[in-house]
């Protein structure tokens, strides 16, 4: 028994060492760092207590970034979820080419973000892009919209992100759909339920838990998404219209060169996320357990 415990610990040791050293320690160090005014690259640092936090409490940029982050995360989650669930329902039906389509739908999720972003920048290019060409050629518009300009950059970012991440919803939801016993549908059909009512009364209750998890995970990931946003607009003039919290945190550290401030933003991001998660659990968890 005692030996068994030792072996168990020994086998876990490499994992714990890595996680403790490279995640645990940085997280704690990050809290500590948030109490300092520290240059990103030079050793100088001064203790400022909660000064950084006080500053961000009234920093317009911070609240704006929370707002943009909320808009970005909220809209991409809703769209991914809608699109992903519909696609999963479709792919759960039987038709020719289903296997191939299941594979194809995965593609966008497997490519590097940088490729996804460049690809969409090419499609949305206002001089040579296919999207604007089609819009002008079909007479939908006379002046091609500048998708990467101020007015549409958030839209372009959202479309790119939804395209890139909806396969996650498809695959996760599909995996659960496949485990729903067919008898449930047959019983519902016997009761005279149409497709919509079968979805409402069989599929939804069965998949409530997985939807709960999908929204939770995607919520966390979209709210902390850095690369898509940064690559889409980070260094351009319009970046201020899509400056989400992760981008602002990155900028504070690596372009303002204020590592303490950046660390503070990371802590605040974590706090907001933890708060939102708690609320989310409070709102939906009970319900899920009951059903």
């Amino acid at each position: 028994m005692r030996k068994s415990a030792l072996v168990g610990w020994a086998l876990l040791a490499p994992s714990l060492l890595l996680l403790g050293g490279l995640v645990g320690y940085p997280i704690l160090y990050n809290f500590w760092l948030s109490l300092f005014a520290k240059h990103a690259f030079l050793p100088a640092q001064t203790f400022v207590g909660l000064g950084n936090y006080r500053y961000f409490a009234t920093d317009e940029e911070f609240w704006r970034s929370v707002g943009y982050g909320g808009i970005y995360a909220g809209s991409t989650i809703v769209l991914q979820l809608g699109l992903g669930v519909v696609a999963a329902l479709l792919l759960n039906e039987t038709f020719h080419g289903r296997g191939l389509l299941r594979g194809v739908v995965l593609f966008p999720y497997t490519i590097p973000t940088v490729v996804a972003v460049i690809l969409w920048k090419w499609l949305l290019n206002d001089s040579y892009g296919l999207v604007d060409y089609v819009l002008v050629a079909t007479g939908a518009t006379r002046i091609p919209p500048a998708w990467l300009g101020k007015d549409y950059i958030m839209w372009s970012l959202i479309v790119t992100s939804v395209w890139q991440f909806f396969p996650f919803v498809v695959v996760t939801y599909l995996a659960r759909l496949q485990t729903i016993p067919p008898e449930l549908y047959e019983a519902a059909t016997v009761d005279g339920a149409g497709a919509w009512r079968r979805f409402l009364h069989v599929t939804l209750p069965q998949t409530g838990a997985v939807l709960f998890v999908i929204v939770l995970l995607r919520g966390i990931w979209m709210f902390t998404k850095f690369d898509t946003v940064w690559l889409m607009a980070g260094e351009g003039g319009v970046s201020q219209y899509v400056r989400t919290l992760p981008v602002y945190a990155y900028e504070r550290t690596f372009t303002y060169l204020q590592a303490g401030m950046g660390a503070t933003l990371a802590v605040l991001m974590f706090g907001l996320l933890a708060g939102a998660t708690a609320v989310y659990f409070g709102l939906f968890r009970e319900e899920e357990i009951v059903s």
Partner: peptide, 9 residues
């Protein structure tokens, strides 16, 4: 200026 200038390199 072109409407997209702010996104140009």
């Amino acid at each position: 200026m072109p409407p997209s200038w702010s996104g140009q390199k």
